[in-house]
Design a protein around this nucleic acid. Sequence first.
RNA 1: GUCUCCAUCGUCUAGUGGUUAGGACACCGGGUUUUCAUCCCGGCAACGGGGGUUCAAUUCCCCCUGGAGAUGCCA
Length: 491
Amino acid sequence: MSVRVRYAPSPTGLQHIGGVRTALFNYFFARANKGKFILRIEDTDRERYSEESLQDLYDTLEWLGIQWDEGPQMGDYGPYVQSQRFDLYQKYAQSLLDEGKAYYCFCTAERLDAVREQQKISKSKNQGYDRHCRDMDPAEALKRKEAGDACVIRLKVPLDGKTTFHDEVMGDISRKNRDVSPDPVIVKSDGFPTYHLANVIDDHLMGITHIMRAQEWIPSGPLHVILYEAFGWTPPKYCHLPLVMGKDGSKLSKRHGATSLKDFRLGGYLPEAIINYISLLGWSFDDSREFFTKEDLEELFTLKKLNKSPAVFDYRKLEWFNGQYIRLKDPESLKELLLPILQKDGVISDPVTEDEMGIFNGAFPLVRERLKLTTQVSEMIRFLFKDIDSYNSDDAIPKKMEASQVPGILDSCASLLEGFEDRNDEENEKLFYDKSVELGIKMGQILQPLRVAVTGTKISPPLFESIRLLGVEKAEARIRALSEQISKETA
RNA sequence: GUCUCCAUCGUCUAGUGGUUAGGACACCGGGUUUUCAUCCCGGCAACGGGGGUUCAAUUCCCCCUGGAGAUGCCA
C-alpha cells in the first residue's frame, strides 16, 4: 500500500516551528516513499478560527516550497476542509449513538468546572468528567435534546481493559482504559466535531497510512484507537515526533523567542536554512553529515533515524546555518533578496537608481560574507547611501590615546586621501603605515578613527574598500566633520 | 494528584556488549585580516544515580532521580 500522510493544522494562529517541523517530516516521508502528502484544514474550532491564520499557513508552505498532492484545491478524497465535512461527522456520530457507543451529555460548563474544582481540592484519583450522563436513558436524552436542551455527544470509553497501539518510533504504548480520558466530547454543542472524532474519521476516509504528529498527542493515542475500534476500522500506523523545546526545557513558546515561521521569514532567515536546521530537530542522518537541501531530504528521510527524546531549539545554530546558506546562495538571487530589504529600510530608493545600484554592486561582495541574517544588510551599508547624523566620538578614540590627539590624526589622514582612488590598496596601506610611523602610533590607532569617520561605526566592511565605494570627497568631508566634532568636545 | 513518555558534551546528535565514545553549534586559544566577519588550525566538554545480567556494560533488565507531555465543548 502506498504511503499517504497528512499535515492537518488548525488555522487558529500563526504557523509555529513545531508545526512546520511536523509538516516537513510528513512531506519528506511522503516524497521519500513515493507517496502522497495531503493538506487538511482542521477548522472545527469556530471560536479561534481566523482567516489570517489560514493565509499564514499557505504563505508558510509556499515560502518553504512545500507542495501538497491533495488538499483544499485538489484531490479525490475531499473536501479537505473539515468545516465542509460537517454532515459527515454528524452521520458517524449518529451511528455511534445508535450503537450505544456514545451518548448525549447535558452537563453545563459550570457543572464541569465545579466537578474539576472539587477533584482538585480532594486530590481525587479520578480527574476529568465524572460520566454523569453516561447512563441516562437514551430515549429521555433524545427527548431533552429535541426539546432544545443544549448538549454534546460523548464517547463511551470502556471502563475495563487496556488499549495498546504501536508507535514506529516509540514501540508499543499502552494505557489502561480507565486512565484514558473519561468519555471525551466528540461533538460539541455547536454541532462541530472535536479533534478526536474528526481526525479519526478523516484519516480513515482519506486512506491515511501513517499518522505523524508531535508527541504531545501520545496520551490521546489510545483514545483514538478506541474510536477506530468503535467504528470497526483499522487504525493507521502511528509515529510520534519528539517535541521541540525552548532553552528551559519546556515546550517552545513565545517567551523563548521567535516561534512563528513568519517571524523568521521577516527576520532575515532563508528557507533553506530553516528547512535544514529544523530537519535536524529529532532526526539525523549519520555521524557527520548535517547539510541537507530540501531535495536531499525528499530522498533521504527515514523514520528509522527519528529520535525519541525532545530537542531544544538552538537559535544560534540556526543563525549559523543561515549564514552558511547566505554564502552558498548564488549572487544574483541573494541580491534580489537584499534589495527589497534596503528599500524597506529606506536605505535606497524604490525603484533603485543606477547610482545606488552601482554602489550596491560594489558593496555586495563585502557584505555577502558578513551577513548572518539578510536583514542585517541595511545597517551594514547604510553609510554608503545616507549621511551620518551623529558620531559616537568614543568609538573613534583608540585605546591608550587621548581624545585631543584624534583630530590631528584625522586631519593628516584627510590629506592622504588625495589621489586615493588612483592607488591600489597596498599602496594606500603603505601610505597610511608611513603616516603612523611618522606620528609614532600604531597602524590600528590611525585606522580606527578613520573607520568611524567614514562608516559611522567601529564595525564595517574593509575600510579602503568603503572609502572607494563612498567616494573620496565624501569620505574626506566625514573625516573633517568628525575631527571638528571631537575638537569641539575636547575644547 | 493521576497517567504516559523520555534520559550521551551547555545545545543538536552519532555510536557499540569490548571504541582514545565521533561530528556540528556555542565557548576558549592560535593563524589569516586595517576593524568586524569569513576561512584555517587547535582546545574544553558527555554516557544522571543505584542495583542486577554478563568474562565485559554507555549499550540489555529493574528501581530511583530528573525532565517533559497529557489530564478542555483547543488542536
